[in-house]
């Protein structure tokens, strides 16, 4: 494997992490938007706040990671994507700002009585980012991002059937992931009614996401033969794995199984993200730019791999420490700093 491929693998690991964690995060926002007002809606949102608030920062760092690896390892691809897809990426960024602001300030908004506004913003922004990221992926897969500064069409590159289907698919997948996660969060919170409610939602979201995935395959067939051929060729095992995981999730959720559904739901997403990667290989921008052609000089690639390795070594244990402390109840919010050994 060349070091360019290795860096592409690191990039893809980041994309996968963002699809799973960012996706679940945005999906939770989607459910909070749909929850409606009233007592019931309030409880759904409380569950969502409680479950995802603490991990927002970590979810969102993955995106920054993906951007940095892309512009360092494959600068030309980054420049081409960001200039041609100026409009959808600006809208995705808008979603991120609103999402972050809604998250940072929702406690304040609650007290100030602006809670409803914050909730709608938070929910709406959760639609913006996955949808427009989906249209970006559609534009890339469809070969509508040529190399160069704004060389592609600023509108039709992402406003076409393929991009719209993939945008919708991203929203549905996020909702599906979030619903599956929230089932067990509701159980942990001791709210059986919410557990039931999210079970229903997960089933619906899974069906919609599955249907959109099939529609996506048709759209790829019509519009993006390179990726379609890849998905039905080298990528086929991963596509099948994704479909199997998706079906297994449906069965597990429908039967009310206590464990397993989260793993299979994540598995379905991971498999399809890697399926896409394998299908596109060796292209970053199908038919226009290969991984090798876009790759930075070898010193940069090596340094990037070393930095990624150090990141894994440092960040891994730090996260483990945080989760261990959290699980032991060592880190939790409290009213006053208490000094215990005041000697």
């Amino acid at each position: 494997m060349s070091s360019a491929d290795a860096v592409a693998g690191v990039l893809w690991a980041g994309v996968t992490a963002y699809a799973v964690f960012g996706g679940a995060d945005f999906g939770a926002g989607f459910w909070s938007l749909l929850a409606g007002g009233g007592r019931r809606g309030r409880r759904v949102r409380d569950l969502i706040d409680w479950a995802i608030g603490p991990v927002w920062e970590a979810n969102h760092v993955w995106l920054v990671f993906v951007l940095v690896v892309l512009w360092t390892g494959f600068s030309e691809a980054f420049a081409s994507i960001f200039s041609t897809l100026f409009i959808p990426l600006s809208l995705a960024a808008l979603g991120i700002v609103l999402r972050g602001a809604g998250f940072a300030f929702h406690h304040t908004a609650r007290r100030a009585g602006g809670r409803r506004v914050a909730e709608v913003l938070f929910g709406a922004s959760s639609l913006l980012t996955p949808f427009f990221m989906g249209t970006v992926v559609g534009a890339i897969a469809g070969g509508r991002v040529p190399v160069g500064n704004a060389a592609g069409d600023p509108v039709t590159s992402w406003l076409n059937a393929l991009s719209l289907v993939i945008g919708a698919l991203f929203v549905a997948t996020s909702a599906y992931l979030a619903a599956v996660f929230l089932i067990s969060d509701a159980r942990r919170a001791g709210a059986p009614d919410l557990e039931r409610a999210f079970r229903t939602r997960a089933l619906w979201a899974a069906v919609v996401a599955g249907a959109l995935a099939v529609a996506g395959l048709f759209a790829l067939h019509a519009d993006a033969r390179t990726v379609y051929d890849g998905l039905t060729g080298d990528g086929l095992p991963l596509v099948i794995a994704s479909a199997l995981c998706g079906t297994a999730t449906l069965v597990l959720v429908a039967r009310g199984a206590r464990r397993g559904a989260r793993a299979t739901a994540v598995g379905a997403v991971v498999a399809i993200v890697w399926g896409w990667g394998v299908a596109q290989h060796p292209y970053l921008l199908p038919r226009d730019l290969t991984i090798d052609a876009a790759a930075a000089p070898s010193a940069t690639l090596t340094t990037l791999l070393v930095v990624a390795g150090i990141a894994a070594l440092l960040v891994g244990p730090a996260i483990a420490l945080l989760f261990t402390l959290a699980q032991r109840g060592v880190v939790e919010e409290t009213a006053r700093p208490v000094r215990r050994d005041a000697t």
């Binding site: 940095v68 360092t72 980054f78 940069t300």
Partner: peptide
Amino acid sequence: PEFTGRFGQVFGVLFA
């Protein structure tokens, strides 16, 4: 994009 497209590979590691 022209700046990052040409020099991202030079300064990008610092951002990593």
